[in-house]
Structures are given as C-alpha cells and as structure tokens.
Design a protein around this nucleic acid. Structure first.
Length: 277
DNA sequence: GTTTAACCCTGCACGC
DNA sequence: TGCGTGCAGGGTTAAA
C-alpha cells in the first residue's frame, strides 16, 4: 500500500524518466478510474500533444505538470503502481490507463483494487481541488519543524495513530509507517496526543524523519500479497526492515516481548505492549 | 472536535 | 472439483 516513501520513489523515477516527454496517445481502459470527468474524452484531449514539465508530490498524490498549464494528478490508492515500459510488453492484468509518448515508450497505470485515481485539472485551479486542498504539511518538508509539530500535537486530543494517519494533520503516512514510527519512538498507538512530554514529542518527530527516509532509501514496502512496484517493476526492500508491522506474535526487536495486534475500525495496528508506552 | 462505520473492489480462504 | 459466502485491506467521507 503506497504511502509517502513509495509515492516519493515513484515521483523521483517519473521526474528522471518522463519530464520532457510529449504525450502522443491516451488509452483509458477503465473509465471509472478517471474520477473528476464524466467523459474520458476531456481527460485524453487535455493530455494529448502536451509535454510533461515537472513532477511534484503532495501527500500521497503525484502531480505531473504539463506545458499547457494543466496538471495530471495521480493517486495509487491501496494497490496501484505505475509501469514504465515499451508498447511491446504484454498488458499486465488490471491495467486501467495507458499514456503513450511520442518518443520513448509509455506509462501504464495498474491498480487491482481500483482505489487509485487519475484526473486532469488546471494548474491555477489546483488549490481549490477537493482531493488536494485538505492535505497537510509534508513531514519531509523543511518547514515541518519540531516546534510546528509540537504545537499541532498539543492542540489536538486524539489517539496518536489516528492523528498520524490523518492527512489533514500530516500528509503521507498510512498504516504501515505510522506503526513503524510509533514503535521507533516507543509510544503506543492509543496514547492521547496532548499527553506527550517534550522529550516524547522530540522522539516522535525524529522517528518520523528517520523511518520515512529509510523507507525512501529502501525504495518502499512491497508485502507478499501486495502489488507495489517501482516504475520498472522492481519491488521495494523496506519490508525486510520493518520492526513491528505484520509481526504479530513475533518477539519485539527491542525487548523480545511478543508483538500484539489491535483492531482499530477494521484496521490492524501492530505494537509492542512492553516498550511502547 | 473526535470517533466510528461504510464504501470503493478484487482475490482468496473457507465450508459445503 | 466446484460453487457460494464472507472478509481483509487503506483512504476518504459521511454520519454519529
């Protein structure tokens, strides 16, 4: 399930590989994946003939700017990935959209569970786009300071995990990385956000930077039953470095206590009952 | 303001 | 072996 590190890996690959490429043809095979246009024709017509000028990320959204001023917005949902390939390769199952370039192959949007989405919007309208306007500060941004984080935490009264996964609070974290960050900082998922000492806030802040940077360095998490891959079909390696996620019953890597799993609104949370307080 | 449930969809495990 | 049922999984949003 792509979270900030996975999306950042894809963004970086796209930046290196498709900036400067001009779109020749667009093939939408599953129209419902285009969320903001009733007609897929508008989607394709705003892309064809346009050159990709830069690739940004906002939370888990990837923004491909076009030389027309429009922006192609992409979200990988839970099971999506982007494949960079030549047109000759056989289509992978669940390929929902194909963007062909004039020179140099094509991009394929593949998403088994169809929770991902694509749409085009005007660059000047982007601030008002419903999907993007609520996205909070990025934890890897320079402006995300310890002071900023500390004040935001204190202003809320929620369980830590819910807060970390709230895209309106901080952007980019999902189930896996929030569990890993909480383990690394020695804090429980159900700890109230306004009860943290200054030292605990600092630990959480630091863990966030370290875990996310590690995730990017290992090119993301690809679990056994999941489909995340980079642009070239390679799986990530971060799954081999996870400390708690998916390790129910196995000994904590810090204190050997068996890792427990809690259910929280139909989602799993993994934590060490001993060393996370 | 905070918490919970439902929805989106496919693949798979399970029981018969 | 085949079929039907139920459910996991994450992000978002609506409702409580």
């Amino acid at each position: 399930m792509p979270e900030l590190p996975e999306v950042e890996v894809v963004r970086k690959d796209l930046e290196r590989d498709v900036v400067g490429k001009r779109v020749k043809e667009v093939d939408v095979r599953l129209p419902r994946i285009i969320r903001r246009h009733a007609a897929k024709k508008e989607f394709t017509s705003r892309l064809i003939g346009r050159k990709i000028s830069k690739v940004d990320r906002r939370g888990k959204y990837i923004l491909l700017s076009l030389d027309s001023g429009d922006v192609l917005v992409m979200h990988l949902g839970m099971s999506g990935h982007v494949e960079r390939t030549t047109g000759r390769k056989a289509l992978e199952k669940h390929t929902h959209a194909i963007i062909k370039f004039q020179v140099g192959g094509e991009l394929r949007f593949v998403d088994m569970r169809q929770f991902g989405e694509l749409f085009v919007t005007g660059g000047d309208e982007i601030a008002g786009v419903k999907e993007l306007q609520h996205i909070a500060i990025d934890p890897l941004e320079d402006s995300f300071t310890w002071q900023h984080f500390s004040e935001s935490l204190a202003s809320r009264r929620t369980k830590l995990k819910a807060l970390l996964m709230d895209q309106k609070f901080i952007s980019g974290l999902g189930n896996i990385y929030s569990d890993e960050i909480l383990w690394a900082s020695g804090l429980r998922h159900d700890r109230a956000s306004d009860t943290l000492s200054a030292q605990e806030v600092r630990r959480l802040y630091r863990a966030m930077q370290e875990v996310l940077q590690e995730g990017v360095r290992f090119r993301g998490v690809t679990l056994e039953d999941e489909t995340y891959k980079d642009l070239y079909g390679k799986t990530g390696e971060m799954q081999d470095h996870l400390k708690v996620y998916g390790r129910e019953g196995q000994p904590c890597r810090r204190c050997r206590t068996p890792i427990e799993r809690a259910r929280w609104s139909n989602r799993s949370t993994y934590y060490c009952p001993q060393c996370q307080v």
